[in-house]
């Protein structure tokens, strides 16, 4: 599923909304997450997962081909940890909240 397919799907579920509003809703959500991470904040979406930023210190790396030492600058990388409910769902264990039938 791509972002545009997600937008189409939501537009289908919400026929009273203009598609351009659905686009703005989806973009706003991901923009907010990106902005929060850029501030160094954490984004916690219970049941879904949490986004955070991990910082990597500056280090001396090596060019694997030549063996030459190179400085690798400090950097920050976005990290996602899957929420428990979603992790269970992926493995076919419905949590009570969403479980319908065990068939």
């Amino acid at each position: 599923m791509t972002k545009s397919e997600l937008i189409l799907r939501l537009a289908e579920l919400n026929p009273h909304l203009f598609q351009r509003d659905v686009e703005r809703i989806v973009s706003t959500i991901f923009d907010e997450v990106a902005k929060a991470l850029a501030r160094g904040d954490r984004v916690e979406l219970r049941g879904f997962g949490a986004f955070s930023v991990k910082r990597r210190a500056q280090r001396t790396g090596r060019n694997p081909r030549t063996g030459e030492a190179v400085d690798v600058a400090a950097k920050a990388i976005p990290y996602f940890k899957t929420g428990k409910q979603l992790r269970d769902r992926l493995n076919g264990e419905e949590t009570p909240e969403t479980a319908d039938d065990k068939a």
């Binding site: 599923m1 997600l6 799907r9």
Partner: peptide, 24 residues
């Protein structure tokens, strides 16, 4: 709607689909 966006993503993943959000 926020909930619905997360649900749709979770549903696709549960079906084994990949979810690609461009520039994210």
């Amino acid at each position: 709607l926020v909930e619905s966006v997360l649900d749709e993503i979770a549903d696709a993943l549960t079906r084994g689909e990949m979810v690609k959000i461009s520039s994210f």
